[in-house]
Design a protein around this nucleic acid. Sequence first.
DNA 1: GCCCAACTAGACCGACCGGTCTACATAATT
DNA 2: AATTATGTAGACCGGTCGGTCTAGTTGGGC
Lengths: 193, 193
Amino acid sequence: MTKTTRDKLIDAMIDALQRRGLHGVGLSELLAAADAPKGSLYHHFPNGKTELAVAAIERVGQRAEQAFATLFERQSDPLDALTIWLQSALGQLQDSAFERGCPLATVALESGPQDHEIRAALASAFVAIRQALQQQLQRHGYPQPEGLAALFVALYEGGLLQARVAGSSEPLKQAVATLLHLTRQHRTESPPA
Amino acid sequence: MTKTTRDKLIDAMIDALQRRGLHGVGLSELLAAADAPKGSLYHHFPNGKTELAVAAIERVGQRAEQAFATLFERQSDPLDALTIWLQSALGQLQDSAFERGCPLATVALESGPQDHEIRAALASAFVAIRQALQQQLQRHGYPQPEGLAALFVALYEGGLLQARVAGSSEPLKQAVATLLHLTRQHRTESPPA
DNA sequence: GCCCAACTAGACCGACCGGTCTACATAATT
DNA sequence: AATTATGTAGACCGGTCGGTCTAGTTGGGC
């Protein structure tokens, strides 16, 4: 299976978003990474960089949903799934010398309300992620599943951010340990109906 | 008291970092906002944009430390202080039509290990913030104060991020409510020595 | 009044940005 | 074999980027 040029472009964009964000990467850099000429970019994505970014965001969203699906399927306790998720993010961060964070976070902060296409793609990706978490938490009887879902996503984003600037996994590890502890305890004390 | 050109430049940079991040703002935009010519920028900050960004980051760090100091001084329970802190961030976000987030977050994600000056400034700002929180939590007998501090910072960063892309305060509000609930409960059940 | 440092002012520069356009290769269609 | 859609290739363009440099202004020390 040979990757199509389109796929290579999207993957290169995802990688770029993880490392530097949308404004941080130039087209030439992107094209070099994807080993594609400019003509191909504008053939597959007539609206240029923005359209490519939207496609990248959508792909990330799809991958996340899929990853959650299999993760929750295999873990009986959603907190175990969450732990694995956070740990794998941490692993990727460490393996890349603290360069690769969340592919959505940087664009999210770089974009404004006027970048409506990008914002729309981001918004629906985040909604999907939160909903997936919420459903699983709810199903297993955790109270305040919506708040917990938003909290875990915040922990992921905020924790990765702190780990990156610190150049260390410690802040994230500690925050994760603390939240898991709090949550398990909470669950234990207010069992499902 | 008239603001000096240097101060106006720093404040303009802080505002820019909150809205769009470092790569997202051009010098011309910055200079227009500060109502200063290019010559002044390079007089006060010979290393240009980067040096100005570092100064902005440092000022944000100082302001944060100061804000925490007075906040914790006035609130007997650190959780109340934390609540006020999170709510004021939310207020600023709403008042700016979801444009103004954390001034450190975007640069944090845009920068890489090679931007060592910026990273150093960011790292020390985050350490200072976490330490301030940790001290207060510890002093009031909360268990795992270090993890809790990192967790609250993550909630702040990750929550603001989610609120921005959602164009709504709901995700952050819910996450805050949930974490406060969990933390209070935890504290109650394991009182200080 | 003179001088010198601090600062303001903006013209100017090369590099690079994202984007367009034409020419060409390739492959499916008939 | 001729034609047509699909995609590759990169020269080229105007605009903007961050940064440099020279000239002028301002105000305090003497």
